[in-house]
Simulated scan of single mutants.
Amino acid sequence: RVHVLGPRTLREYRELLRSSTAYVYLAAPHALTTGLLEGMACGTLVIGSDTPPVREIIRDGVNGFLCSFWDAEGMARTIADALENAPSLGQVRVGAQQTILREFDAEMQTRRLMSLILHSMEQKKNEESADT
């Protein structure tokens, strides 16, 4: 079954993701939404388009599956294979959750942002010292 739903609360959305066999995330090049991250965080088996922003997060066969955005038949095969093998793909689901915890956890993102800010401040300080 394919469900295309209107607006839902975040809680309802997460419940839907957790109960889904697979989540197909198609993003045109240079577009990415939090939907991909939510799906992976919920441990949903994610099939995503092989486009630059999605490819940065999904490693094919490790934490999800990639398919060509422009190849409808290939995409259908990838989705059908994932659905057929879904019961044996628990490690891919776990890999998706681990990716989100490791790379997108709020604490991790805060540390990265702090590091970026401190690095930028240090560069600015060095530039000002060099100018004098």
Rank of each mutant, 00 (worst) to 15 (best):
S20A: 15
P52N: 09
I100N: 00
D60T: 13
I117D: 02
A31F: 15
Y13P: 03
V54H: 11
G90C: 05
A86E: 12
D131A: 09
R18L: 10
D71K: 08
I47Q: 13
P7Y: 12
E12H: 14
S19L: 02
Y25R: 11
E12K: 13
P52Q: 11
D105Y: 09
L45D: 02
L26P: 01
E12S: 14
R112V: 12
I79N: 00
E73I: 08
G90F: 02
G90M: 06
E12G: 15
A31G: 15
C42T: 10
T33S: 08
R112N: 03
S88G: 07
F69M: 00
N63W: 01
H119I: 12
A80V: 07
A31P: 14
D131G: 08
A130F: 06
I100S: 01
F65A: 02
Q97L: 07
V92I: 07
G90K: 06
E56M: 08
N63A: 07
K124M: 15
W70T: 05
T99G: 09
F65H: 10
T34W: 11
D81S: 10
T78F: 11
S49A: 04
L118K: 09
T99Q: 06
A28R: 03
V24T: 03
T21N: 10
F69K: 01
R102P: 02
K125G: 03
